[in-house]
């Protein structure tokens, strides 16, 4: 359940230049993406399942992220709950979607996602801010 989804921007696609310009001129540029909700749902499901249903949470990891986790720490269903990813990160406070990429700020975690053919998948979780540098993420694909 998404309690609050702030969509400060985010269009799925910027479409043609002229369309973008017209969108911006008409004030539509700040409207949220139709993908805000699906991305936020995936982040919340993942956050909820890490502790209660690791198998489901592992199913929400992006392929490369899961491979890396298993390469380094063994089977996902054990490695994921044993990682620093919070077991109940709470609900999404803000989600930002740009094309096939999204970041969701939950109450106790920040989760990065990408939209694959079968839906939104978590590319990185257990992330803490690192100033102007990229987040430090305990589980990530690259």
């Amino acid at each position: 359940m998404v309690t609050a989804v702030t969509s400060r921007n985010a269009r799925r696609y910027a479409a043609w230049p002229a369309t973008c310009a017209l969108l911006a001129l008409t004030g539509c540029a700040g409207q949220g993406s139709v993908e805000d909700r699906p991305a936020a749902d995936a982040a919340e499901h993942f956050a909820r399942d890490v502790g209660s249903d690791p198998s489901a949470a592992c199913g929400l990891l992006a392929p490369q992220t899961r491979v890396k986790l298993e390469d380094e720490h063994g089977p996902c269903v054990q490695a994921l709950p044993g990682s620093k990813v919070p077991h109940d990160a709470g609900s999404v406070r803000e989600v930002k979607v740009y094309g096939k990429d999204a970041v969701a700020h939950l109450e106790r975690d920040t989760v990065f996602l990408a939209r694959f053919d079968d839906g939104w998948r978590v590319t990185a979780a257990g992330c803490t801010p690192n100033g102007d540098r990229p987040y430090d993420c305990d589980v990530e694909g690259s």
Partner: peptide
């Protein structure tokens, strides 16, 4: 303007891919 709007979106997609 289109460059700005589309560039903002493309840049931010890249930012997210780099966990920023």
């Amino acid at each position: 303007l289109a460059q700005f709007v589309a560039g903002h979106s493309a840049y931010n997609a890249e930012q997210i891919q780099q966990l920023s």
